[in-house]
């Protein structure tokens, strides 16, 4: 699904070169749920940005679902992002002027999907996260946990094979964080590959595979048992 080989990322300023990633190698198989941990400044977000094609890498090779990302144009990367990847951000990144329906609809519009199909998919995803009754609400009318569930619905709307979550529970209290985590686990059980960056070791342990990044390199792999399945109903009802 995802293969990174000798990926390096160097940020160059006038006087300083910063190596955010060094000879980074990673293989992710379809259906995996990986938690990425590491201290601040270790390169987690850079890894996530490169994995999500949000920024380019300096050297190495990155294959996503058989496509050599390094050779793609900006437009092709945008299209591939839209089709293959769903993003969940720490700050939710919902568009404040758009209501829930319109927010979830955004990636589908960029894919050129017909209005009727968009509506069907958006409603289905909002139902999955338990917010179908609030489609006319604006993001600021929701709690943090609800906003993150909308963001998850948006990430799911495009039916991506690959979910990238950047500290998805970072702005949530522990109860909300648990609910969001349970939702991600459910999505993973439904077949999506998930890479989640987190600072929270407890949440990280819930992922079957952990990667620790230190100084732009993978410092440690840990494999855990799969967590016990959580009924979806308890997530949707939150």
């Amino acid at each position: 699904m995802l293969q990174m080989k000798n990926i390096s990322k160097v940020y160059q300023t006038e006087k300083v070169q910063t190596h955010a990633l060094r000879d980074f190698d990673l293989n992710v198989d379809e259906g995996e749920f990986i938690a990425v941990t590491g201290p601040s400044g270790s390169g987690k977000t850079t890894f996530l940005n490169i994995a999500g094609m949000l920024e380019s890498f300096t050297a190495g090779q990155y294959m996503l679902d058989g496509v050599d990302v390094g050779s793609l144009s900006d437009n092709a990367r945008a299209d591939l992002r839209n089709q293959k990847i769903g993003f969940i951000f720490q700050g939710f990144n919902l568009i404040p002027d758009l209501n829930l329906f319109e927010n979830v609809e955004v990636p589908l519009r960029y894919r050129g999907i017909k209005s009727s199909e968009r509506k069907e998919r958006v409603m289905h995803c909002l139902e999955q996260v338990g917010l179908a009754s609030r489609i006319k609400h604006l993001p600021q009318q929701l709690s943090g946990g609800q906003q993150q569930r909308v963001a998850i619905a948006r990430a799911l709307a495009g039916e991506p094979r690959f979910l990238l979550a950047d500290e998805p529970t970072g702005n949530l209290d522990s109860l909300m964080a648990r609910q969001v985590m349970e939702l991600l686990e459910q999505i993973n059980r439904d077949g999506a590959t998930i890479i989640m960056v987190t600072h929270d070791p407890e949440l990280a342990r819930r992922a079957p595979r952990n990667i620790q990044i230190v100084d732009g390199q993978i410092a440690d792999f840990t494999l855990y048992q799969k967590p016990t399945a959580v009924p979806v109903a308890s997530v949707a009802g939150a």
Binding site: L54, D74, A78, R81, F87, F89, N93, I95
Partner: peptide, 16 residues
């Protein structure tokens, strides 16, 4: 700015 970045992350081309 962040909204535009988010749109780009969600698949918007520059032309969009």
């Amino acid at each position: 700015t962040k909204q535009i970045g988010t749109r780009r992350a969600l698949g918007a081309r520059k032309s969009h």
